[in-house]
Amino acid sequence: HYVEVNGKKIQATSAEEAEKIAKKFAKIYNATVLDLGNYYKVT
């Protein structure tokens, strides 16, 4: 599981952790979290 933010991949140990990381970055960048199955993308 990982999160992609601005083209950078951030490794996460679980889907739950990946979701938390994605939501945190989405809040910082006022962005949207896309759940793409095996990873989250912040756009």
Rank of each mutant, 00 (worst) to 15 (best):
6 N>H: 10
21 I>P: 00
24 K>L: 15
24 K>M: 15
14 S>V: 03
29 Y>A: 05
21 I>K: 02
38 N>T: 14
7 G>V: 01
23 K>S: 09
29 Y>W: 10
23 K>V: 10
20 K>S: 11
3 V>E: 00
42 V>P: 04
23 K>Y: 14
34 L>N: 06
14 S>P: 00
35 D>C: 11
5 V>H: 04
21 I>R: 01
13 T>E: 12
15 A>P: 10
20 K>L: 11
37 G>P: 02
29 Y>V: 05
20 K>D: 09
24 K>A: 14
19 E>P: 00
36 L>H: 07
43 T>L: 13
2 Y>H: 04
12 A>Y: 07
17 E>F: 05
25 F>R: 00
17 E>W: 07
16 E>A: 14
40 Y>H: 05
9 K>R: 13
12 A>N: 01
30 N>P: 01
3 V>H: 01
2 Y>W: 15
40 Y>P: 03
42 V>C: 07
10 I>F: 10
42 V>F: 01
37 G>F: 06
32 T>W: 09
16 E>H: 10
34 L>Y: 08
29 Y>P: 07
19 E>F: 15
26 A>Q: 08
29 Y>L: 12
19 E>Q: 11
27 K>N: 11
2 Y>R: 01
33 V>F: 07
22 A>N: 00
10 I>H: 06
28 I>M: 14
2 Y>C: 09
37 G>E: 06
3 V>W: 02
27 K>L: 15
9 K>A: 06
5 V>K: 01
15 A>V: 09
22 A>D: 01
25 F>W: 13
40 Y>G: 03
20 K>V: 09
19 E>A: 13
5 V>Y: 10
15 A>E: 05
27 K>H: 12
25 F>V: 07
11 Q>G: 10
12 A>L: 07
18 A>F: 02
25 F>T: 02
9 K>F: 13
15 A>S: 10
43 T>V: 15
32 T>I: 14
27 K>I: 13
19 E>R: 14
41 K>P: 04
43 T>S: 10
24 K>S: 11
30 N>C: 07
30 N>Y: 05
42 V>M: 02
6 N>E: 06
6 N>W: 15
3 V>G: 01
38 N>K: 09
24 K>P: 00
1 H>V: 10
41 K>Q: 11
6 N>P: 02
17 E>L: 07
32 T>Q: 13
5 V>M: 06
6 N>I: 05
36 L>C: 15
35 D>W: 15
34 L>C: 10
20 K>W: 11
25 F>K: 01
37 G>K: 05
21 I>W: 08
12 A>Q: 02
5 V>W: 12
18 A>S: 04
9 K>M: 12
27 K>Y: 13
13 T>Y: 10
26 A>G: 08
29 Y>I: 06
18 A>V: 02
16 E>P: 06
41 K>F: 09
3 V>I: 08
9 K>H: 10
40 Y>K: 04
21 I>L: 12
3 V>A: 05
30 N>F: 07
14 S>Q: 02
4 E>F: 08
31 A>S: 08
24 K>E: 14
8 K>R: 13
24 K>G: 09
10 I>L: 08
39 Y>K: 03
40 Y>F: 14
1 H>N: 07
11 Q>C: 13
7 G>D: 05
22 A>T: 02
16 E>K: 12
30 N>E: 06
3 V>R: 00
1 H>Y: 15
14 S>W: 06
16 E>D: 10
39 Y>S: 07
34 L>F: 07
31 A>R: 02
3 V>L: 05
42 V>G: 03
9 K>Q: 09
9 K>I: 15
25 F>C: 11
4 E>V: 12
24 K>F: 15
17 E>V: 08
31 A>W: 09
